[in-house]
Amino acid sequence: MIAPDIEPIVARYHAGRRDALIPLLQEVQTSCGYLSREAVVRIGQHLRLPASKVYGVATFYNQFRFQPLGRYHVQVCRGTACHVKKSQQTLTALQRTLNIKPGQTSRDGLFSLEVVACLGACGLAPLVAVNGEFHAGATPDVVNRLVRNIRKEAKVK
């Protein structure tokens, strides 16, 4: 996939303004789905910050990812209610079956995994969202079945 051009976004921010770093990172991620190496270096050049600093700030926040989104973006809620309902086991199950860690994308580009603090539907805990669609009561069994179905579906397509 060819990354979308970030120049128009970068150009909207004053060069050398450190305080623009986080908004700029957010906007680039919204546009590209993730922060590529090129984007990190380019943003650093524009704001006159070392790439190590840009990367350091970006890794501080959970919201930034450094791999492109998969076709199916899986968000696992690790908020309080979901935690009580054993969402850790759900996350472990997903990491195992997808063979990736949160923030990563599977090699075939099918899945990406993200941990979120709360999806705001605590009554449905433990909760998982796939491309924004909620799956309530997402126990390890449920998510394993879900992943199997998606894989089957993807093969047919």
């Binding site: 190496r37 070392p50 190590s52 600093k53 990367y55 350091g56 890794t59 501080f60 926040y61 450094f66």
Partner: peptide
Amino acid sequence: AIDFIGRGSKTRIGPAF
């Protein structure tokens, strides 16, 4: 060339990426 990467107990020092 180096900075703090990550946060909390996962914080480490290293070069970009």
